[in-house]
Design a protein around this nucleic acid. Sequence first.
DNA 1: TGTTGCTTAATTGTCAGCAATCAGCAAACG
DNA 2: CGTTTGCTGATTGCTGACAATTAAGCAACA
Lengths: 233, 233
Amino acid sequence: MTKLTSLKSEKRLLDRRAADQIRSHILEGVLPAGERLLETQLSEELEVSRGTVRSALAQLANEGLVQQVAFTRWEVSGTSTVDAWEIYTLRGALEGLGARLAAANVTEPDGSRLRGIADDLLHAIREGRFQDATSIDFNLHAAIIELARHERLAEQHRFIVQQVRFHMVQSGFLPNDYEELIAEHKALIEAVIARDADRAEKLARNHNDAEVKLLAKLLKQGGSVKPIREKVS
Amino acid sequence: MTKLTSLKSEKRLLDRRAADQIRSHILEGVLPAGERLLETQLSEELEVSRGTVRSALAQLANEGLVQQVAFTRWEVSGTSTVDAWEIYTLRGALEGLGARLAAANVTEPDGSRLRGIADDLLHAIREGRFQDATSIDFNLHAAIIELARHERLAEQHRFIVQQVRFHMVQSGFLPNDYEELIAEHKALIEAVIARDADRAEKLARNHNDAEVKLLAKLLKQGGSVKPIREKVS
DNA sequence: TGTTGCTTAATTGTCAGCAATCAGCAAACG
DNA sequence: CGTTTGCTGATTGCTGACAATTAAGCAACA
């Protein structure tokens, strides 16, 4: 008997797949902030019924990518400077906890794996593949979170990382000092491997501080705060 | 012009209200863990269509109160010791961040308000109104989080507090050791009012440590994944 | 000119029914 | 006697149609 591949990917519920499609369009910037989403139009394009589209949109609303104005409209959410500050401060707290727990759980092969990913990141940056670098960066953080063996933390982290991506797409934000980035990652990984929980947590939190401080400064300057329509509750 | 009250509460969409109903039944323990939920039955009891019930159940699934087995069934989720450990560690991290930010924002009237709630809590306990005490306890923490002026943090906190309530209901929570609780709250509030961010964060995190340590111990014993008795908050 | 109320087209909210899928059971088979 | 196979009833997944609500345009009017 030859090995068979799971059919689960095919069997995924229609509304989930619809949500996936819309989500990737949003996260790739095809659908910009404020763009109105018509249920009928989406249902035609995706070739599913309106009810299915509705279900998909509800999911995306839970993820914060889309907003619902009752009886009126769906639209792609926008991220303001305040939102960005919220996202990065939350990320710092979650990754701080993650790093602390990871330091308690880490094993020898885990350490090698982390160093391997860090190496990939280094090469991507050195070779100017910044698109890849961003992706590997996310993978590295996800790998640390995974070591925490904390399902809810992982879930929240996936959520907040998606928000980060969402904001990066909308604001055209990119890291500005890759050398610093590499150094910080290196230090964080080594702290985790050394099982130094306090230091790992501190470094994970500091890792987001550059952005947080920049954003806080923008906010004090009374920076750009895009209007955000109120969600229906 | 007199102040008018919003009509939103009346105009809330049907599926949200259905979710509210089912949610409160779950959080009051009327529907125990593992209980199967039939869409048709719920739609008859709530006098709404099955599609509406479906939408409500999807929301509750996002909140972790309900699980979906595709094409087969919906059922009330259960919380294990691992779940409880996750919930309390996450809560510690979130409330730590909240307390830190609250300390930066707190004003004189805010401080009075916090002390007032703490007083209410004290009286409720002294008078043996433990039901109220639990509720006031949650309010106190929510009040601190509110001071952080961090919408996403508040959202996550509401979520995790709901999980705490969920777990308390399922594990047959019984209140005890309220003196320690009062002392810890007092210290936390005063640290926030003193704008001592480091201390406020530390205290907020320690506040959950008793449970976390107990749970970690239970986990190491490799034992009960079944309900256990917890201290409040 | 600006406001008010009506009309209407567009869009979302809800419903009832059909299709797809599954768990359980009993008959067929070795 | 144990295993496999095919049915059956029940339940969830999805769809198309209808109801409720909104926003915009337009006429009436002060």
